[in-house]
Simulated scan of single mutants.
Amino acid sequence: MNNLQFLIGRKPKFYDVSDMIVKAVSSGARGKAPRDLKVTLLDSEQLGSVDTDPSDGLICTFLVDGAEFFRGIVVSDNRSSSRTVEIHAMDNAMYLTKNKGSFTFKKKTATQIFKAVCKKANLKVGGAVNTKFKIKELTKKGTTFWDVIQDALSQTYSSTGKRYYVTSIKGELYLKKRTESNNMIIVDPDTNTTTYSQTRSIEDTYTRLKLYSSTTKKKKTTTKVKKTVINKPLENKIGMMQDVESVDKKIKKSELKKKAETWKKDKSTMSTTMSWSGLGDTRAISGKAICVKAPQLDVNKVLYIDSDTHTWQNGSYTMQLTLKYAASNSDAG
């Protein structure tokens, strides 16, 4: 049984309402912001003296066995006839989705774009890995700050085959690379697994790609195919399914080659995902690697967490994960 703590308030005063916790659920997903937390509290006389008004700018912190698992902003509260109060909070990545603007970046890395956008949103950056690849130009008009960052990461992945993700830790935002860890979780039916299932699909699969550039002169636009990639073995089996992507007219041959390689691994293959449920582990957060053993599916490999939901209730801690297969460790995520 985990020791749970839930603190709510504003500096300098925070209320410890840990004894009133009935249920807590936290969830997150790859490429989505923010992470959220829903805590159900017993609506007792003691809780009546605690401010839960979302318009007061309240901060809450959720700890599991003394370690901070979540910190965020209270966005709603709900009182019911069952004499419970549900507090809904989101981490500070919420501000990236709740602010819109126009941006133009030239020859900047996703790291530089991430830092610039966070600065504009008045959000503190705790750390950011160097993505190295310079994006020739990224222009976004009237879009959320989050979309700008995700566009930069998407272009970086397309050109390098490397994935990165944004996470909030103790009130600070981090840009991290998706990699395996020495402290990786291992799940298997003998120790911590309740159920698992695997889904294979070609719904989002393509068999060929056309990379083209566009040039506009005197209001007339012309296009030129820079490269065509065909996965012939797959196309012979399932038929032609064509994808297109616009590239800069001055793109280098090496960049075209890398885009083609990334596309083939990412989109010209059958997608395979796994749904898993079992005992909870606070290390299992979207974007991280996990070692999965599922003998009935002949699976014993590293997968990456696409979405996660952690639930604490009645003294038990469980989690549900959506896991993604990857062509290789470097392009996983």
Rank of each mutant, 00 (worst) to 15 (best):
L323W: 00
A128E: 04
L256N: 05
T273F: 02
R83M: 15
T205N: 12
K107Q: 12
T191S: 12
Q112T: 13
Y174P: 02
G278S: 05
L173R: 01
V292T: 10
T222W: 04
K259D: 07
P34D: 11
D65Q: 06
T104P: 02
A128C: 08
S246D: 08
S197Q: 14
S82F: 09
E180V: 13
D306E: 14
Q313E: 14
D331I: 03
A116S: 14
A29D: 03
T191D: 09
A294W: 10
I251L: 09
K11P: 04
W263Q: 01
A24Y: 00
K106D: 10
A93W: 03
I238G: 01
I113V: 07
L153K: 05
S26F: 05
F62S: 00
H310S: 01
E203C: 03
R208D: 15
K13R: 07
L175K: 08
T52L: 13
S246C: 12
D331G: 03
F69K: 03
M270E: 15
A110Y: 00
R208Y: 07
S168I: 04
L58P: 07
M20S: 12
F114N: 09
K224A: 13
S275P: 00
W312P: 01
A24F: 08
T223R: 12
Y95N: 08
V129E: 13
M240Q: 14
T195P: 03
N3C: 10
N231T: 04
N122E: 14
S254H: 02
I238Y: 11
A332C: 05
T193E: 08
L37Q: 00
L123C: 09
S316N: 11
I285K: 07
S316P: 02
Y304P: 00
T262K: 02
G280D: 02
Y15W: 13
T109I: 02
S26N: 05
V302K: 06
G278Y: 07
T40K: 11
T215A: 10
A121Y: 03
A89Q: 03
V17R: 03
F70K: 05
A110D: 04
N183Q: 14
E45L: 10
K108I: 02
Q296R: 11
A284R: 11
S286M: 01
F145Q: 00
G57D: 08
V229G: 06
Q112V: 04
S246M: 14
T156K: 00
S76R: 10
L47V: 11
S82W: 06
G171C: 11
K218W: 00
V292E: 07
S197C: 07
P12L: 04
K162G: 00
V302C: 02
Q5E: 15
T269R: 15
V302H: 07
S307R: 13
A128N: 08
K108T: 02
D65Y: 09
N314Y: 07
S82K: 14
L279C: 01
A327H: 12
T282K: 08
Y15G: 06
S201A: 07
S254D: 13
G57K: 11
M1E: 11
E137Y: 08
Q242V: 13
N122G: 07
A289Y: 04
K257H: 08
D43G: 10
R163L: 04
I149G: 06
A67D: 15
A67F: 13
C118K: 01
K115E: 15
P295C: 08
